[in-house]
């Protein structure tokens, strides 16, 4: 039952990214939490999700730009390391999540080209104002993205399961290095994301004030 629910959850994340709702179901933190709960290890889901979320904050899906798909990738990364001692595993999960997220993202333009074929095949009926053609195109394309999301979810989860089943675990020193690299990359991503979307004076001041407050709070607690 759990594998099926995991697949369903990761598929839903893929659909949320572009086609349905576009709420937060495709965000790494949300996907990680759901996956962690399904695997009875919410703590790991939370940590993997939070780490990948920092990377996702560097992604702005403006216009028709290309972006990664972190949904199934986060589920797979969580699956790979759930139950493991997290401090060595977090780096591994981050690397796996980033690689799978990039691979999954490459399926989006391919799906759009499939959509374009359907639209072109119905171009005459669309220009004739045929409501049934519009509904047919819309549902067919939704089917494509459901297929894409389902396939990506299955492959990503299989990869995550493969890492888990291989029993490979980095030696503690390597694991700690990978986690440190992941944190460095996450810091890079999130600060770049915060500034790439606006570097005006006020934006700088509010971001700096936030960082200063955050450092104080982190030191205090």
């Amino acid at each position: 039952m759990t594998p099926f629910l995991l697949w369903l959850w990761a598929t839903w994340a893929g659909l949320d990214l572009v086609s349905v709702l576009q709420a937060l179901f495709s965000r790494p933190l949300v996907v990680g939490v759901g996956t962690g709960l399904l695997l009875n290890d919410p703590e790991t889901g939370l940590r993997v999700g939070a780490m990948l979320e920092l990377f996702a904050l560097d992604v702005v899906p403006v216009g028709s730009s290309r972006y990664p798909d972190f949904g199934a990738a986060t589920a797979a990364a969580t699956l790979a390391v759930a139950g493991a001692s997290w401090d060595g595993a977090l780096g591994v999960a981050t690397g796996l999540g980033l690689a799978l997220g990039w691979l999954a993202g490459t399926t989006l333009p391919a799906t759009r080209r499939l959509n374009a074929r359907v639209v072109r095949a119905h171009a005459d009926r669309l220009s004739a104002g045929d409501p049934r053609a519009i509904a047919g195109v819309q549902w067919t394309c939704l089917g494509f993205d459901a297929g894409r999301s389902g396939l990506v979810a299955a492959l990503a989860l299989a990869a995550g399961w493969g890492v888990r089943a291989s029993g490979w675990a980095p030696e503690p020193a390597l694991g700690r290095s990978l986690t440190a690299v992941a944190l460095g990359g996450a810091g890079w991503a999130v600060m770049h994301g915060a500034l790439a979307s606006g570097r005006s004076g006020p934006r700088w001041r509010w971001l700096s004030a936030g960082v200063a407050g955050g450092v104080l709070a982190a030191a205090w607690l």
């Binding site: 920092l54 904050l57 810091g187 999130v190 600060m191 994301g193 915060a194 606006g198 934006r203 509010w206 971001l207 700096s208 004030a209 936030g210 960082v211 200063a212 407050g213 955050g214 450092v215 709070a217 982190a218």
Partner: peptide, 9 residues
């Protein structure tokens, strides 16, 4: 911007 700044540390 403020929230992201606070959250990171």
């Amino acid at each position: 911007g403020l929230m992201v700044g606070l959250a990171v540390p």
